[in-house]
Design a binder for these strands. Structure first.
Length: 424
RNA sequence: GGAGAGAUGGCCGAGCUCGGUUGAAGGCGUCUGACUCGAAAUCAGAUGUGGGGGUAACUCCACCGGGGGUUCGAAUCCCUCUCUCUCCGCCA
């Protein structure tokens, strides 16, 4: 949610920045509603003041045995009037709130201006892709040959875009999760969490998935509950409606969770196999930050995500999402894209964002400074990394001529010392 | 799933029977001042959040788990939802 103050005092600026997202939002109706709402509030408060004063009078007169009927009569009318105005106020709120909750965050001034993902500038590259003396296979082919991925049975058990990991495939996924968690906990200073994978509507609203993106979520039939699309939701909501202490900040959590996404309308050839699943595993980083530090911490968070790929020896690049490609809640986002030899292209494997106060306002998360003043804070998060896509990258980048797949050094302790997954 | 009890400020905890200067006693904590070389102890004072108006001093409105109702007036009465605890049942 944007700050009301910014909308009231700097609407032109807000509109300009939203326009950079390549979307068109009209504020005309809101301006009228906002004015009406404030006017109603003023009227109601005036009448309530009158009521409160009269209430005191009634109490006093009752004690003195003085007549109270005339005041009672008048206050009855005032109460009716208040009830009427409050009804009108509620109506304006019912129109204003959904509008405000659907307004996207403002892109930060450092975000490159552009129309779509083709305008995302590359920030840096690390490493280089493998060169093969043979025709490299896709991860689907590799997974099938090694008998570690089974999409057919995944589809039988559930449906399309659900995968069954088998044997060393399952072990590799688990190894990656543990490797990533250990790295962030032991070396990057994150506190490990294991949150619920199902959250309520309030949590989804706080981080920005609701009300606008309900069709992307799996909703439970008999409860107002949703399967999480990312650990960002439960992790950020840990502190919903809380006031943190200055001494706690910056506060950083890491969690592994499965993620569930309906992915409506995203079918295509380049997203076959593990690339786009309805259920996938992810290790997620979340940070609660002082406002004036959040952009430094975004850079830091990004390096934490990159570190995973460096240790795994996977070639990647970092791009900065342009204004037209920026996510709804984000003020600035870097994507980390890993090299996939089969597609000869980079694919997103991590997304690191600064939400500034956008989520914190929705979630009412603030902090108290040493003077006791309550102040807004910023939230950030990033995947580090999407595990399924990491498996894809490992299989494709470490495939050998004999059909085996080498396991990077740092993962071997998590794989019982295994050096390569081979065909039986 | 069944039966019962409860939810009050940063924390503990009164108030709810009998609705009326109760934003809410008391204690703890925190902050300021006094005392002290300093600290502790003691004493005095201060100490919620959000929103509106005002340059400011200040002032007004709302908030006692959420929502609704009764009433001139609700922390207090009624309904409803959520959560917590105890007992029973079921269960990894």
């Amino acid at each position: 949610m944007l700050a009301l103050k910014d909308l009231r005092e700097g609407l032109d600026l807000v509109q300009d920045r939203i326009a950079l997202r390549q979307i068109d939002i009209s504020f005309d109706e809101w301006i009228g509603l906002d004015r009406r709402q404030r006017d109603l509030k003023k009227q109601i408060e005036g009448l309530k003041y009158k009521k409160n004063k009269a209430s005191g009078q009634i109490a006093k007169r009752k004690k003195e045995n003085a007549p109270i009927e005339p005041i009672l009569e008048e206050m009855k009318q005032v109460s009716d009037e208040v009830a009427k105005l409050e009804g009108a106020l509620r109506q304006t709120e019912a129109e204003i709130n959904p509008f405000l909750l659907r307004l996207p965050n403002l892109p930060h001034t450092s975000v490159p201006i552009g129309k779509n993902e083709r305008d995302n500038p590359e920030i840096r590259r690390w490493g280089k892709g493998p060169s093969f003396s043979f025709q490299p296979l896709t991860h689907l082919e590799i997974g099938e040959r090694l008998d570690i991925l089974d999409f057919k049975r995944g589809a039988k058990i559930t449906g399309t875009r659900f995968a069954l990991y088998k044997g060393w495939g399952a072990r590799l996924e688990r190894a990656l999760i543990n490797f990533m968690l250990d790295l962030h906990v032991n070396e990057h200073g994150y506190k490990e969490m294991l949150p619920p994978f199902i959250v309520n509507g309030e949590s989804m609203t706080a981080t920005g998935q609701l009300p606008k993106f309900e069709e992307d979520l799996y909703k439970l039939k008999d409860d107002d509950y949703f399967l999480i699309p990312t650990a960002e939701v439960p992790l950020t909501n840990i502190h919903r409606e809380e006031t943190l202490l200055e001494s706690q900040l910056p506060l950083s959590y890491v969690a592994y969770t499965p993620c569930f996404r309906r992915e409506a309308g995203t079918y295509g050839n380049e997203s076959r196999g593990l690339i786009r699943q309805h259920q996938f595993n992810k290790v997620e980083l979340v940070t609660f930050s002082f406002p004036d530090e959040s952009y430094d911490l975004l850079e830091k968070l990004l390096t934490h995500a990159e570190e995973v790929l460096k240790r795994l020896g996977l070639h990647y690049r970092v791009v900065s999402l342009c204004t037209g490609d920026l996510g709804f809640s984000s003020a600035k986002t870097y994507d980390v894209e890993v090299w996939l030899p089969s597609q000869k292209t980079y694919r997103e494997i991590s997304s690191c964002s600064n939400f500034e106060a956008f989520q914190a306002r929705r979630a009412r998360i603030r902090y108290r400074n040493r003077e006791g003043k309550v102040l807004p804070l910023h939230t950030l998060n990033g995947s580090a990394l999407a595990v399924g896509r990491t498996v894809v990258a490992l299989l494709e980048n470490y495939q050998q001529a004999d059909g085996s797949v080498l396991i990077p050094e740092c993962l071997r302790p998590y794989m019982g010392g295994l050096k390569a997954i081979e065909t039986n």
